[in-house]
């Protein structure tokens, strides 16, 4: 799965902001932001990755056990799906 084309992640001061340009389904009167870990996973998803790869990268980059990382990745992916930000 991969982040849809029309979206960019930009750091504004210390906030990671998602900017939607070119996706007509994007609810534009909204500004979405990601935390540090969300931004980390987003960058991987920009090039495309599967769930297990995300878990692996999270475990190797951050000090978390696999179990927590899995729960976090699943929660993150479901929020991206809910906002229709990724293409499977």
């Amino acid at each position: 799965m991969k982040i849809k084309p029309g979206y960019m992640l930009r750091k504004v001061v210390d906030i990671h902001v998602i900017i939607g340009i070119g996706d007509e389904n994007y609810a534009p009167n909204q500004i979405m932001s990601l935390n540090e870990t969300g931004a980390f996973l987003w960058r991987i998803l920009e090039d495309g990755a599967e769930r297990d790869q995300l878990v692996e990268r999270l475990v190797s980059e951050y000090d978390v056990d696999t179990h927590t990382a899995e729960a976090d990745v699943d929660a993150f992916l479901s929020s991206l799906r809910e906002k229709a930000l990724i293409a499977e």
């Binding site: 500004i31 979405m32 870990t37 729960a71 929660a75 993150f76 929020s79």
Partner: peptide, 12 residues
């Protein structure tokens, strides 16, 4: 993230 934090990784 979601497991213990109050805020999720993605926020509106």
């Amino acid at each position: 993230l979601s497991s213990s934090g109050r805020k999720g990784p993605l926020q509106v």
